[in-house]
Design a protein around this nucleic acid. Structure first.
Lengths: 340, 340
DNA sequence: GATTTGTTAGACAACGTTGTCTTATGTGAG
DNA sequence: CTCACATAAGACAACGTTGTCTAACAAATC
């Protein structure tokens, strides 16, 4: 068989430099116990041959891969994208690389991806779990890999989590709508089986309750994959006129805006709207969109930092549950008139 | 020293099943030359022990990592994000994993990242090169790794590339503006040192020339990191009134829209605008934005497919230069009135 | 001058897996 | 009954690196 032509190895370097394999290794790693002159000589040979250490071999020997794995539902989602970018930056600073996979929100696929990552010996994992149940990851705890859950916590586990104030943020938004005098408010777009979804709905419901509104006026529409027609119907029927809409995630905001436009409803005047999740152009819209913005990059950064702390710490420390605040950007769509 | 408690290895499986290491390996890989009964016995032990193959060791032995590397300027950019998502999907179908890094458009960092990836023995690379010169990657050709360049070609090399019709797309947009009767058109946001930038400007300039417009009326503003004030000045001064703006990338579109809003200029009526790059909310804006949309996901998918074809092909084949079409979405900001 | 100490270098095994080659076992042909 | 032959299983080395232990040698101590 033809030997695959690969780059030079440490053995080649050692031979060429007239030293032993181990000495070459020492030069490579700035190990102590090597004469500066020898080290220099070896390094010269290395650059002459264009030697590149094989990280696979290193990882195998050292039982670490210098890689962390990250699983998100969908990378094309700007929220995930920002987070991943931040994670990647932190990873680089720590000399690690990010192996990225997406689960499509599918629990089965998520399991597979996690399995793949663990087999690749990643040193740590950051997951935005498709499901909040512990089942998916518990088998990996046995693999002794530090895991940080991101965007959603994993219940009944002692896995670190980084989340945002979903409930309180929606509460704030709802209160703002109430303060405008709106009473018939539709909360739409939650996936109630997800942590984020149920928290956001809870924020809405509790606020409406506290305002002593009759239960019949709570309007919650769960499915997030609503097709336009469903939304259209919702807007038309409803028990009485709808005052305001609270969209509980970015995709829903898009859908709702599109339908409102088709119906000729003017946002801000005909009907108020607050969006959970910000958009690049939200400020430019007429009317500009009032939004709850999640600190996506910060979330990613903190998740990665926590993960590395966990990875580097000799002693175990208690589960961390970090909750970051969202920011509320009052613009025009909520009924406020903006003074620029 | 305390031995790191790791999961079971093939040796453990073999011992437990009462077979040799090699036989266990055969059971794992469905190798021929093993009795079905033996294979079943071994596999039972595997799942009982929760055995997970170590991909690092496999990679080292087989001289392949089952990973591809991808380098993009900035992952938070929706264009990159969509492409990465698509790449990841193709990679999974091919049993590979994606190691993702971002260069921040910095050539030096890009080099470092590439080096890291090659050291990790990735089986292939997809790059959106920060610079179109060959220097950055030529050292990796020696590493015999298939490379596909993405969004921008690498000149003077025989590296495959996937790009879009930058020049023709801008030509189409420019012609559309001219057909509205606009003559004083500002093309803004190109980074002329990048392939995409120079191509887009070339599309603009050649179209203006062909329309026999005087050279003084060409208005090209290069820097993409324009701060708002610069844009503001451009809009105010200029030799005569500005008819239209052609923004040559998404970030610039954002900036320009914001400034126009501040100046109280109404897009579509006061001044026309076409954006290279689409936005999620572009359709919802008033006026809705006429845009050139790049098929980001398709670009990523094709890049990955080409890469895998290259990786799997025994015989080398000629350099591929795939050029995908953009789509032109005529909405309102160009001066057209949309009939919904 | 013999012994200790410290420095530098090398030999060898190991990480977990698979490729190559060999050996054991049974099966059918002559 | 012997030989060839397929089938199944094992022994051993190898992938490229680093950890452990030992060897060589010079300098320093007594």
């Amino acid at each position: 068989m033809l030997k695959k032509t690969n780059g030079p190895t440490l053995v080649d370097v050692a031979r060429e430099a007239g030293v032993s394999l181990k000495t070459a290794s020492r030069a490579l790693n700035d190990d102590p116990g090597i004469a500066p002159a020898t080290a220099k000589k070896v390094r010269t040979v290395m650059s002459r041959l264009g030697y590149r250490p094989n990280e696979l071999a290193r990882g195998l020997k050292g039982r670490k891969s210098a890689a962390i794995g990250m699983v998100v539902p969908n990378l094309a989602d700007p929220f995930s994208a920002s987070a991943v970018q931040a994670v990647q930056e932190v990873a680089r600073k720590n000399g690690h690389v990010v192996v990225l996979t997406s689960s499509g929100g599918d629990e089965l696929l998520e399991r597979e991806e996690l399995e793949t990552l663990v087999r690749r010996q990643v040193d740590g994992l950051i997951i935005a779990p498709a499901d909040g149940r512990t089942s998916t990851v518990d088998s990996f705890i046995s693999a002794n890999i530090p895991v940080v859950s991101f965007d959603r916590p994993i219940s009944n586990s002692n896995i670190d989590s980084i989340t945002v104030t979903n409930r309180d943020s929606v509460r704030e938004a709802t209160e703002h709508l109430l303060s405008h005098g709106y009473r018939r408010i539709l909360a739409i777009g939650a996936r109630p089986h997800l942590y984020t979804g149920s928290e956001r709905v809870a924020g809405y419901v509790s606020t409406m309750k506290r305002a002593h509104l009759k239960k019949e006026t709570y309007l919650v529409e769960n499915e997030s994959d609503l097709d336009p027609e469903v939304i259209q119907k919702l807007l038309k029927k409803g028990p009485g006129k709808l005052d305001a809409i609270l969209t509980l995630n970015g995709i829903t905001t898009m859908l709702v805006l599109r339908v409102l436009r088709q119906l000729g409803k003017r946002v801000g005047s005909d009907i108020a709207l607050i969006s959970f999740d910000d958009f690049e152009l939200a400020e430019i819209l007429t009317p500009s969109l009032t939004v709850v913005r999640q600190p996506a990059a910060e979330l990613g950064r903190r998740a990665a930092e926590l993960l590395f702390t966990r990875m580097q710490s000799k002693k175990p420390f208690p589960r961390q549950e970090i909750v970051l605040s969202t920011t509320f950007h009052i613009r025009e769509s909520c009924g406020c008139t903006q003074n620029i």
